[in-house]
Design a protein around this nucleic acid. Structure first.
Length: 566
RNA sequence: UGGGGUGUAGCCAAGCGGUAAGGCAGCGGGUUUUGGUCCCGUUAUUCGAGGGUUCGAGUCCUUCCACCCCAGCCA
């Protein structure tokens, strides 16, 4: 679908503490009024809805203040990173509607500079090579309440440290033999400052630098310096990095380089889903979903395939705001944003998911009415031809032999409207041996052609329908929440909360105009919900549809209340 | 008293000493050839709790409570 460019989805962006802070910096002429942010994912998984919040924040901020945002892949741990992920990240950020122009960077681009900075730190006596094992380092770090103890290697000479570090880099030592540590304070109440490791030996091939390096910098060393090298003014990250800010500042101050400002915000949590890479990767690797782009996944690739629009996601990110308190946003808000967007933009069509045969007794055997229906009831999107004939399908749920009170769809003796076509009245119910309704015999009022009658009589119900003879069969996938529990992430085993009904596949009857739609095409199946043609599994002339979201269902809610009480 | 943070409605979230925005959800009503959309109305005498300062406190001070993050050679 056509898409408004990012940043124009909301006329007046809500203020938040980060915008306010950046505005203040600009007003004070800090950094010469320049604003540069960055979006720095590690390529160890696919981007998800939580990343969307960060992407919108970072790119939105730079756009608002006339700056730019870099895309930077934080690839300092080759053991976990893959090119498939860097490609998906680029695809997803672009799809969301943001552009990094030619500023596609990698932390690995800076490996030499980072190495030089590490040597500089050693020269200053602020870093040392530690020969302790990982276990010893852990044991000597102390606890949250007790200080750590200094490494026996802490006071090596600059020369020895330099020599050892160079030999680490030269590959003389096996993994884990030594690390480079910042010399700060083993008694600091902030554990992050207890001589953090800044380089470790990993004889692992890197997806970009190959075998050029066998030592790799740690996040706390690489990230702040990468920001500094790029000239980032505001380094925005999530709350769990708050404790690391003093280290971020320490490294930059020791080296005397350009000093970006780190600002933390609360990550997004969404009900009925998980947004942690560890859990998402588990869903994929253990086969709970068909992959990173399974339409039930909260990944950007997943929701895109499901039919979510980039614009609705951006709107969602505007509405949830940016603050510093832990939050759990209701999934319903996301769906609201989606429906609002799709209601305005999605063409309408008719599809019957659970067909019930209807024979119009007084309609001529071989007659066909060729109706012309608009693609959208309010907006001019052109029209399509829809055939009507003697044998039709309606939704099985739209008929009740014994209607509950308030039911104004089809039941024996009742008259309803077939959307845009004719009024019909149910005359007879035909059942099989098992007592199941298999067919309805109805009559139609020829005078009601188009869906209204000259005498002005009203019918309460309007049903969608398809002509049996003309309908095309198609696979339709009905998706529901992946998790039944509102907060699966808090469960002992989140996989135990997986909704067994998160996917229902049906063979549906579609109006013929849907036969040749393009993969990715969005529409509303009238009265049912928003759907889109699956990008992967649709074939020419044989679309497969994914249900993106249902329509709001007021009647369903009323009926539920009638039955269950409350 | 390890350190760092956060508490405003069911869920987000404004509020920056002058008398509680907005959105979602909910509830009530209207329109409607989608029980959709749209429209109108309604929803916190009170801001985690107590005490204090002030003419005036969600905003300042203070005590307490709750929750989150930190002891990777992950990010």
């Amino acid at each position: 679908m056509s898409d408004k460019p990012a940043g124009e989805s909301c006329q007046s962006s809500p203020v938040n503490f980060i915008r306010a802070r950046v505005a203040e910096d600009v007003a004070n002429g800090k950094n010469g009024g320049r604003v540069m942010t960055r979006f720095p994912p590690e390529p160890n998984g696919y981007l998800h809805l939580g990343h969307a919040k960060s992407i919108c924040l970072n790119f939105g901020l730079s756009k608002e203040f006339g700056g730019v945002t870099n895309l930077r892949l934080d690839d300092t741990n080759p053991a976990k990173e893959e090119v498939e992920y860097v490609e998906s990240i680029q695809r997803d950020v672009k799809w969301l509607g943001f552009d990094w122009d030619d500023r596609m960077y990698y932390a690995s681009n800076y490996f030499q500079k980072l190495y030089d900075f590490a040597e500089a730190l050693i020269q200053k006596g602020r870093a040392y090579v530690d020969d302790q094992t990982a276990e010893e380092i852990r044991a000597n770090r102390g606890t949250l309440k007790e200080p750590g103890t200094n490494s026996p290697w802490r006071d090596r000479s600059v020369e020895e440290n330099l020599d050892l570090f160079r030999r680490m880099r030269a590959g003389e030592f096996p993994d884990g033999a030594r690390v480079l540590r910042a010399k700060i304070d083993m008694a600091s109440p902030n554990v992050v400052l207890r001589d953090p490791t800044i380089y470790r030996i990993k004889h692992v091939r890197h997806h970009r630098t190959g075998d050029a390096w066998c030592i790799y910098p740690m996040y706390d060393f690489a990230h702040c310096l990468s920001d500094s090298i790029e000239g980032v003014t505001h380094s925005i990250c999530t709350l769990e990095f708050e404790n690391n800010r003093v280290l971020y500042d320490w490294v930059l101050d020791q080296l005397g380089v350009f000093h970006p400002q780190q600002i933390e915000f609360a990550r997004l949590n969404l009900t009925h889903t998980v947004l942690s890479k560890r859990k998402l990767i588990q869903l994929v690797k253990e086969g709970y979903t068909t992959g990173w782009d399974d339409p039930r996944m909260p990944t950007l690739s997943g929701v895109r395939r499901r039919g979510y629009t980039a614009e609705s996601l951006r709107d969602f990110c505007e509405r949830i705001g940016v603050a510093r308190c832990d939050n759990m946003v209701e999934f319903g808000l996301l769906e609201h944003c989606l429906r609002e967007d799709l209601n305005a933009r999605a063409p309408r069509a008719m599809a019957v998911l659970n067909p019930l045969k209807v024979v119009i007794e007084n309609y001529p055997e071989d007659q066909v009415d060729e109706f012309t229906f608009p693609w959208h009831p309010e907006t001019d999107m052109g029209s399509r031809t829809v055939p009507f004939s003697k044998v039709l399908y309606i939704e099985r749920e739209d008929f009740r032999e014994e209607p509950p009170k308030g039911f104004h769809r089809l039941y024996p003796g009742n008259e309803v409207r077939l959307r845009y076509a004719y009024y019909i009245t149910c005359r007879e119910v035909i059942k099989n041996e098992a007592g199941e309704v298999v067919e309805l015999r109805c009559t139609y009022d020829p005078e009601s052609r188009g869906g209204s009658s000259p005498d002005g009589r009203k019918v309460k119900g309007t049903l969608h329908w398809v002509s049996a003879r003309h309908a095309i069969d198609a696979e339709v996938r009905l998706y529901d929440l992946l998790f039944t529990d509102p907060n699966p992430g808090a469960a002992e085993d989140f996989t135990a909360c997986i909704n067994p009904n998160s996917l229902t596949v049906v063979r549906a009857k579609l109006e013929p105009a849907l036969k040749n739609v393009e993969p990715g095409w969005h529409c509303q199946f009238e009265r049912l919900g928003y759907f889109c043609a699956d990008e992967k599994d649709s074939e020419p002339g044989a679309p497969v549809f994914n249900r993106t979201a249902t329509l709001k269902d007021t009647w369903g809610k009323i009926e539920k209340k009638q039955q269950g009480g409350r």
